[in-house]
C-alpha cells in the first residue's frame, strides 16, 4: 500500500527536475510547463478519469487543473513534490466538479451498468472484472472513491494521499478501509457466481 511512486514524499531524483521545470516556467520559459504536463499527464488523466468516472468530465477537470497550475506555478514554494502539488490541483478540480453536480448521480464509466455485470457471471473475464470494478467504484461516495483511487489503484502512500486530499492520514486509512469493504460487497455478487449467503451476513446481522 505504501509503494509510493518515485519521489513523491521526500523528493527523489525525478522531483528535482520537475521543480526546475516549475521554476523555469515561473521565470518565463515557454516550453517548461508543456514538458511538465507531458511528463505527468497520463497518470493525472488516470486519476481524474477514475475519480470522476466520466471521460468528458475528466477532460474538463484536467484542463481546468492544468490551467490553474500554469497560473499558480509562480507561487509554488516546493513544500511538497511537484507531482504532489499537481495531483492536489487535479483532485481538487475533480472534487469541485463532483460537488457541483451533487444533485446528479455519478455516471459510471462507459460500457457497464452500475447494477448489472456486463456479462453472464460465469463468463467474467479480466476485462469484465475491470469494468465491474469501474462500475462499483462509481457507486462509492466521492470521499471514499478519491482515497481508493489514489492509494489502492495508483499506489500512493497514505501520507502523500493525505497531503493531496488535505485530510488526516487516519482519515485516508478509514476512507480506504470502508471504501474497500463497499467495493468488496458490490463485487462479491459478480465475482462469485453463487455467493454463499454468509458472505454478506456480517454487515446485515450485526
Amino acid at each position: 500500500m505504501d509503494g509510493a511512486p518515485e519521489g513523491v514524499v521526500t523528493g527523489a531524483p525525478a522531483a528535482d527536475s520537475d521543480l526546475e521545470l516549475v521554476r523555469a516556467h515561473a521565470a518565463g520559459d515557454p516550453e517548461a510547463f508543456g514538458e511538465l504536463v507531458r511528463r505527468h499527464r497520463d497518470r493525472l488523466w488516470a486519476v481524474a478519469l477514475r475519480t470522476l468516472g466520466d471521460r468528458e468530465e475528466a477532460a474538463d477537470a484536467l484542463q481546468d487543473a492544468f490551467i490553474s497550475a500554469f497560473r499558480a506555478a509562480a507561487g509554488f514554494r516546493g513544500d511538497s513534490a511537484v507531482t504532489t502539488w499537481l495531483h492536489r490541483i487535479v483532485v481538487n478540480a475533480c472534487l469541485d466538479r463532483v460537488r457541483r453536480r451533487a444533485a446528479r448521480p455519478v455516471a459510471p464509466l462507459p460500457e457497464t451498468g452500475p447494477d448489472e455485470p456486463a456479462e453472464p457471471r460465469d463468463a467474467m473475464g479480466e476485462r469484465d472484472i475491470r469494468l465491474a470494478i469501474d462500475g462499483a467504484l462509481a457507486r462509492l461516495p466521492i470521499e471514499q472513491r478519491s482515497a481508493i483511487v489514489l492509494v489502492d489503484i495508483h499506489g500512493y502512500s497514505v501520507a502523500e494521499t493525505a497531503v493531496i486530499l488535505d485530510i488526516a492520514e487516519g482519515t485516508v486509512k478509514s476512507r480506504c478501509a470502508r471504501g474497500r469493504g463497499r467495493l468488496a460487497v458490490l463485487l462479491a455478487g459478480i465475482r462469485n457466481p453463487d455467493p454463499p449467503s454468509d458472505v454478506e451476513k456480517p454487515g446485515v446481522e450485526s
Binding site: R50, A59, I133
Partner: peptide, 23 residues
Amino acid sequence: TTREQLAALPAVPMPPDVAERID
C-alpha cells in the same frame, strides 16, 4: 482480493484528443 484487483487495474494513457485539447 479487492485490493489486489484494484492494484492490477491497467494504466489508462491520456487519449490523443484530450492531450491535444489540453495543449
